[in-house]
Amino acid sequence: MTTLCLPPLSLYVHIPWCVQKCPYCDFNSHAQKGEIPEREYVQHLLTDLQQDLDRLKDSVQDRCLHSIFIGGGTPSLFGAESIHQLLQGIEQQIPFSPNIEITLEANPGTAEAERFKGYVKAGITRISMGIQSFNDEQLQALGRIHNAEEAKTAVQFAKDSGLNSFNLDLMHGLPNQTLPQALDDLRQAIVLNPPHLSWYQLTIEPNTLFAYRPPRLPDDDELWDIFEQGHQLLTEAGYQQYETSAYAKPDFQCQHNLNYWRFGDYLAIGCGAHGKMSFTTGEILRYSKTKHPKGYMRGEYLYEEKNVPEIERSFEFFMNRFRLLEAVPKIAFEQFTGLVQSAVQKQIDFAIKQGYVQETHEHWQITQHGKLFLNELLELFLPD
C-alpha cells in the first residue's frame, strides 16, 4: 500500500444534551431530563480521548491539534468551568498548535453575557450560534427555544466577549417561507455583521418529527430564487462563499470545517462522534462512538471502526473537496488518498466534457455548473 502524507489534525467533541429536540433535527441529541452530569461526562470524554490516543498512537505521534469543535446537542448548557476542565484535560494529552481555533456551539436561548466571557476565559476562540431565523413564527415552527430579540442579544454578548470570531447559523426554505421573508432574515443577520455565516436549506431528514408530519416547504423554483437573491445580498455585503453553505468575511473561514472538506484527519470523542485518521503506512480509518449517553457513561466508548478501502477513497475525497469552491491540488489527492491521478482520469475527463470541472496542470476546479449538479458529479467516483 502507498504511504500517505498526514494532513492537519482536528478534534470533534460531542455533547449530546439539549433543552428540547427540534422537529427537523437528526443529530444525536437528547432532550435534557433533570440535571446534566457535566463533570462526570467531561471525565468520560477525557478517558475516551486517552483510549483513542493509545489505540491510534501510530497516527497521532508527534502531531498537534489544529482545531477543536465542540458540537451537540447544545454544548452551551455546560458551564464555563466544565469547558475549561475539558480543554485543559485535552491539552495535557495532546499539544495544541499555537494559533488553534476552538469553536463551541451555542443556543441563543442559553446565552448569558457572563457565560460567554467565561467560555473565552476557558479557551474558546469562536462561537457558533444556531439562530436559524429572525422571524418569531418561524422559530416556533422550528421548535426553537429562543425568539428574535434573544438572538440579537446573544450576538451582542458574542461581540462583547473578546472572541476571535463567531458564526451565525441561518436556514432558508422554511415551512411556508416566502422570498421576502427569507431575504429579511438574511438582511437582519448582515446588520449584525458576523464574521461568518452558515446559510443552508432546510431538508427533511428521516426519523425526525418533520418526516412524520411534513410541513409545506417552498418548491424548487422558489428555493432557487431565495438562493440566487440571497447569495447576491451576501456577496454585496462583503461575504465570500467558500463552501456550499458557508460564507465568511476575508480570513474568517472556519478552519475546523475547512479541514473536514480538505480530507483532513479528526479525532472524535463523545456520544455518536465520528472520526477519521490516516496512517503513514497507507491505511485510512473511520470510526464512531456509542450513541446513547447511558452506554457511553458506562465507559463503552468505541462503537465501530473500519478501514477505508482504496476503491472507496476517490469518492470520499471528492465528496469532501468538491463542497469547497477553491481549486483542488492534484498533489493533495495523491498525498491524502494514496492513489495516483490516473486512477480517476477517466471520470475527470467525463466531468470536464459535462462542464462540471475545469483542469489545469496542477489543479481541478469545480465550475458553477458543477455546483448545480454536484450529486451527478460525485456519482462518477462511486465504486462500480
Rank of each mutant, 00 (worst) to 15 (best):
K57W: 05
D58W: 07
D58Y: 05
D58L: 05
D58C: 01
V60W: 02
Q61T: 06
Q61D: 04
D62H: 04
R63L: 05
C64Y: 06
L65G: 15
I68D: 01
F69P: 09
F69S: 04
F69E: 01
G71Y: 06
G72P: 15
G72D: 14
G72V: 05
P75H: 13
P75Y: 07
S76G: 14
S76Q: 09
L77I: 10
F78S: 13
G79T: 07
A80N: 11
A80T: 12
E81S: 11
S82L: 02
I83S: 10
I90H: 06
Q93W: 00
I94K: 01
I94E: 04
I94M: 01
P95I: 08
S97Q: 09
S97M: 00
S97H: 00
P98D: 03
N99G: 02
N99T: 05
I100E: 05
I100S: 01
E101T: 06
I102E: 03
T103I: 05
T103R: 00
L104E: 05
L104T: 05
N107H: 12
N107L: 03
N107P: 12
P108V: 12
G109C: 15
A113P: 09
A113V: 05
E114I: 04
E114D: 08
F116H: 07
F116G: 10
K117V: 09
G118A: 03
Y119C: 07
G123R: 01
I124Y: 04
T125P: 12
T125C: 03
T125Q: 03
I127Q: 02
S128T: 10
M129S: 15
G130I: 10
G130H: 04
G130E: 11
I131P: 14
I131T: 15
I131G: 13
I131A: 06
I131V: 15
S133M: 03
F134Y: 05
F134H: 14
N135D: 14
D136L: 06
D136I: 02
Q138W: 09
Q138I: 14
L139F: 08
L139G: 14
Q140F: 03
Q140W: 06
A141Q: 15
L142V: 14
I145K: 09
I145A: 13
I145L: 11
H146T: 08
N147K: 08
N147M: 02
A148L: 04
A148K: 09
A148H: 10
A148G: 13
E149H: 05
E149T: 05
E149G: 09
E150C: 15
A151M: 07
A151F: 06
K152T: 15
T153F: 04
A154T: 14
